[in-house]
Design a protein around this nucleic acid. Structure first.
Length: 289
DNA sequence: GCGACAG
DNA sequence: ATCTTGTCGC
């Protein structure tokens, strides 16, 4: 028998419970952070996802297998050929009174650059938006949507933070740990941590480290993630803001940034997240389920 | 009290 | 997140 490469298991017992009090929510996040793995521990080859050119080449001819020795820290057994990457994002529904009373989670699964499945779920909102407690507001809808996903996800890409979080337990980390699926947080703005360099007008493909500061429950200087410039304008006047990418679960900071960069198409957001974003908007407009 | 904060 | 007019630039 071969020894397992990782010991983590799904943790439904750590699912975000919106009925908890604030202190209990924070305590749960400490458990999430303890169970989280912020290093590469997945079964697929990230290379074709990281390198846009290799993606199409992999579909054609199979090169000599001997030349495919891994250089990363990922699990080297049972490699998943065509990893299924899942983008997740939420939108909100308003009732007749005009209040946001429901969350709609949209999930888009992609394989080899193609959408293979889309599912969504709507749940009642039970708690307001509080910076640092986002997973308790949106987690229920996300888990419900994932419940109806038929394909087996190899990687989750969330619209929000992972380890870049006060207690190192952002929404990407929380859901990743509960499902024990490798996950990455992709945020459009920085929640906490300190940038280690200037992010103004970075060129496409570059990244700037984000380390823990006194607002984060981690040793000062701990690498939390990266500000990643996936796209940038050619000329002057205007510039695109970077993405704030961090490990959710079972993915290290470097790989998380590589994947966010490699999965970005024409737009700055990685394609799975961008499509989940538009699907979230599309789904709430039509038959509400 | 002040500052600061994903979606 | 969500609501929206106007405006810049290719």
């Amino acid at each position: 028998m071969t020894a397992p490469r990782h010991t983590s298991q799904p943790r439904p017992d750590l699912a975000p419970d919106p009925s908890l009090g604030r202190a209990e929510m924070e305590a749960l996040q400490h458990d999430i952070a303890d169970a989280a793995v912020f290093d590469d521990e997945f079964r697929f080859d990230p290379e074709p996802l990281t390198n846009p050119l290799a993606a199409s080449a992999a579909t054609t001819t199979t090169g000599d297998a001997a030349a495919n020795d891994e250089t990363n820290n990922s699990l080297d057994d049972n490699h998943t050929p065509n990893p299924t990457v899942v983008g997740i994002d939420q939108s909100f529904l308003t009732n007749e009174a005009g209040d946001q009373d429901r969350a709609l989670s949209a999930v888009v699964a992609m394989r080899s650059g193609e959408v293979v499945e889309r599912v969504h779920a709507v749940t009642t909102l039970e708690t307001p938006y509080i910076p640092g407690l986002l997973s308790f507001r949106e987690g229920g809808a996300i888990l419900a949507a994932l419940e109806s996903l038929a394909v087996e996800p190899d990687l989750f890409l969330f619209d929000g933070s992972g380890r870049i979080h006060f207690r190192q337990a952002g929404i990407a980390t929380h859901i990743g740990v509960v499902r024990d699926v490798p996950s990455i947080g992709v945020a459009k703005s920085l929640l906490c941590g300190s940038l280690q360099g200037d992010t103004a007008n970075l060129s496409a493909g570059t990244r700037v480290a984000i380390e823990a500061d006194d607002s984060v429950d981690a040793p000062e200087g701990t690498l939390l993630g990266y500000a990643v410039q996936t796209r940038q304008y050619d000329s002057p006047n205007r510039y695109i803001n970077p993405l704030y990418v961090s490990p959710g679960h079972r993915v290290g900071p470097e790989t998380a940034a590589d994947l966010a960069l490699g999965l970005a198409g024409t737009y700055k957001l990685p394609e799975p997240v961008r499509l989940a974003d538009s699907y979230a908007t599309e789904a709430k407009g039509e038959g509400l389920d």
